[in-house]
C-alpha cells in the first residue's frame, strides 16, 4: 500500500435521497496519523459521509478513495467502523463476537481486545442481551479499536454514555490506534473530544463549512473549539 497516499480523499462527493441533498460537492483529504473531528448539528450529513466512506451507501456523484482504494471489499478490510447503533445480535456472546472479528478481519488483535475487555470487567461468556446499553457500546468500541486498521470511523462514540464512560472511551480510542492510521470522530459533544483532536471539519447542510487544525480556534480568538462550534452553529 502506498504510504504517501492520503488515508481518505473525497472529491466532489454528492449524496442525495430523492430531492433531499444530504451531501453536496464535498471535497476533503485526511492525511495519515490525524485525529479528525467531524462536527456539525443534527442532519448536517456526518453519518451519511461515514456510511459512504465505509461502503454502506453509494454516492450519487463524486468519488471516495481510502488509501487509494474505491469503497469495496479491499477498502472495507482497512476501515474500522463504529456505527451509532448496536449491531451485535442479542444472542451473540462476547467471545463469539471476538471470533467473528478474528475470522473476518486479518488485522484484528484478539489479545488487545481481551485486555481491553478485562479492564472493562466484561466477561467473554456473557451474551450481548445481558449487557447494559453503555457496556454494549464499549464492547463494540473494543472490537473496532482492536483492529489495526488504516482508518477508524467512529460515529457518535460518546453520544449515549455517562461522562465517566466518555473518558474510558476516549482513552481507549487514543491508547489503541497506531500513529500511521487516522481517526474520524463524528460528534456534537465538542467539549468532550476537543482535547484529543488534531483537526476538525465543520459540516452544515451537507457542505464543508470549515476544515482546519484545532489550533485555528484559538488563533481566531475563540476560547476553544467548543466555543467556535457554539458560535458557528447558534440557532
Amino acid at each position: 500500500m502506498d504510504q504517501t497516499l492520503p488515508v481518505l480523499e473525497c472529491t466532489e462527493l454528492t449524496k442525495s435521497y430523492g430531492p433531499t441533498m444530504a451531501l453536496s460537492d464535498l471535497s476533503l483529504k485526511v492525511p495519515r496519523g490525524r485525529v479528525v473531528g467531524l462536527l456539525g448539528p443534527n442532519g448536517s450529513g456526518k453519518t451519511t459521509l461515514m456510511k459512504l466512506i465505509c461502503g454502506l451507501l453509494t454516492p450519487t456523484r463524486g468519488q471516495i478513495r481510502v488509501c487509494g482504494l474505491a469503497p469495496g471489499p479491499q477498502s472495507k478490510a482497512i476501515v474500522s467502523y463504529l456505527p451509532e447503533r448496536t449491531y451485535l445480535a442479542p444472542s451473540m456472546k462476547v467471545a463469539a463476537a471476538l471470533d467473528y472479528f478474528a475470522d473476518f478481519y486479518t488485522d484484528f488483535d484478539r489479545a488487545a481486545a481481551l485486555d481491553m475487555l478485562a479492564r472493562l470487567g466484561v466477561g467473554t461468556t456473557q451474551p450481548m442481551s445481558a449487557l447494559s446499553k453503555g457496556t454494549k457500546e464499549k464492547v463494540q468500541l473494543v472490537l473496532v479499536m482492536a483492529r489495526r486498521a488504516s482508518l477508524y470511523l467512529l460515529d457518535e462514540p460518546i453520544g449515549g454514555v455517562d461522562p465517566a464512560a466518555r473518558d474510558y472511551i476516549l482513552d481507549t480510542i487514543i491508547g489503541n490506534y497506531h500513529r500511521d492510521a487516522s481517526i474520524i470522530i463524528s460528534t456534537h459533544l465538542v467539549a468532550d473530544v476537543e482535547h484529543i483532536l488534531d483537526d476538525f471539519i465543520f459540516l452544515r447542510g451537507g457542505l464543508v463549512e470549515k476544515c482546519a487544525s484545532v489550533s485555528f480556534a484559538q488563533e481566531a480568538g475563540y476560547a476553544s473549539l467548543d466555543d467556535l462550534f457554539r458560535k458557528e452553529f447558534r440557532c
Partner: peptide
Amino acid sequence: YRNLFTDEGYLTLTLPVT
C-alpha cells in the same frame, strides 16, 4: 432480513466481502 436490513446490517455489510 434481520442480518442485512436491521442494525445487524452495519456489521454484515461492512465486512470485507462482496
